[in-house]
Design a protein around this nucleic acid. Sequence first.
DNA 1: CTAGGGTTAG
Length: 632
Amino acid sequence: MGVFIVAVTNTNPFPPNLNLNSKNGGSHDRKQLISRLHKCRNINQLAQIQAKMIRNGHEQDPFLLFEVLRLCSNWNSIDYASKIFEHIKNPNVFLYTALIDGHISSGSCLHGIRLYSRMVDESIKSDPYVIASVLKACGFELALKEGRVVHGSALKMQLDSNRSVRLRLMEFYGRCGAFKDAQQVFDEMPQGDVVASTIMLSCCIIHGLIDKAFAIFTQVSARDTVCWTAMIDGFVRNGEMNRALRLFMKMQGEAVRPNEVTVVCVLSACSQLGALELGRWVHSYVGKYKIKLNHFVGSALISMYSRCGSLEEAQEVFVEMTDRDVITYNSMIVGLAMHGKSREAIELFQAMVKQGLRPSSITFVGVLNACSHGGLVDLGFKIFDSMVKDYNIEPQIEHYGCMVDLISRMGHLEEACNFIRRMKVAPDHIVWGSLLNACKIHGNLKLGVQVAKILVDGGIADSGTYILLSNVLASSGKWEEAAMVRAKMRHSGILKEPGCSSIEVKNEIHEFLLGDLRHPQKEEIYKKLDKLNIILRSEGYSPATEEVLQDIEEGEKEWALAIHSERLAICYGLITTEPGSTIRVMKNLRVCNDCHSMIKLIAKITKRKIVVRDRNRFHHFEDGSCSCGDYW
DNA sequence: CTAGGGTTAG
């Protein structure tokens, strides 16, 4: 980008009073056009109004064109707006600003910056609005150099005292990580500006500076809904769900009313924690406090219910929402796929297409995931091919990952390797991990070791890789080598993510680690586990000791297995909830084979439905079998 | 005659 030149005036060769129409008729037409533009709701109506503008000789009227561009911007019709703009003979600063804003809201900030550059080249004088807009674009684009130039122009034109300009300057520097500059602008602003503080704390959150953000938050005297929401969202984004929920409670204690955005953030926290009861409470809150069930809130609810294990309630919300967009469908499709309802997910995808909605790349992640969980190889390929062919969506690494999972889990390991070779993007640890997992399932030691080597040599091996490799080796009885792999993992400083399961009882989340002894009711829990073990044994259950990762003595192996965290969580559920009620457990890792077969039996003998969310998907255990059909 | 303060889903 070149250096911006500060312009003096805007010379328009068509003075507005040189109208071809008669004086009265022209201005009457114009008034009518303005009122029609204000009522305009879609592109088709807009095109009609434009036709009339041309017929009445108003096609270059800057005021009318400004309204037109703003409408396009609101509807995210940036291509249409750009086309109109190219036909404007002498666009003024208002029209430039409108189009720059359009580019920003459609996510192409770089185009916005270029457009500003063009405006400067055309010697059109800047005003505070356009400066604020282009600074916003620079902030999103992390265009530090360009933004500094804009800042320089603003100083020259003495526009830097304008509040909007200052807010945007702060946002721009903050987003770019230039905190010293951001702080300087912030310090020069009047004290107690809640908006300025919200911008500052949001910028800190973007850069993971959560404590700095919280420090700013606590210093704001008059915190409003948006400020509270920004902070709650910050905790959620930084993985601190409990702090987010505590802050939400505190917000209500201070009688600040949540809005739609707040609810979406809190629901996201519930989803991640698996806090169904709390999520239900937030849902009832939506009804009680007239929070609009808009697309954001609807999707967040659907997603919360699916991710908390209650697909039925997710579907109820989906049905209740008559006005659905792509993301509403995506949430439901992803939910169905997660729960192993492959056919339903694919049918919903087809219904969505039939409705005239254009699937997005996330839609395909959901649908391909459904194929993968359902073992639907042919259909998976068909959908994968149609992505590019019918929807012009280039597959991303996530889509390739689903395909490799789908192909290799069916045992077509060779084909999976060929597929990886043909991929247009470099395979990541998830793609190789899927293949490695399939090697374990299908007992292909040779390929498994090769794949693991690729991961380790490529420096993309995480703890999961090492664990999987050690599992592959252990399941072939190669205990020594398995132990060596684990030693190597410790050596390279990679820690095993500790297995952790949680269960919500009476609005409280109880967490359990492997062999956890911290819970106040640990004695009852372990007593329950012992009792279950005796019954299970009489039912013919014998622990699958080869699943244990370490090469240890038989007796020890069984003990180590018996206390996988999900077992503790389930036992706690059994002793604290009503007989016959569903038990829902969330786990951060995948369920092992042995736990899987044990939980099937527990469900049978206790006559309970047990729902387990693992790293990848849901398992619904009922009467001795699991919804995944032992295929996960 | 033209004009947003900040926070949002998969």
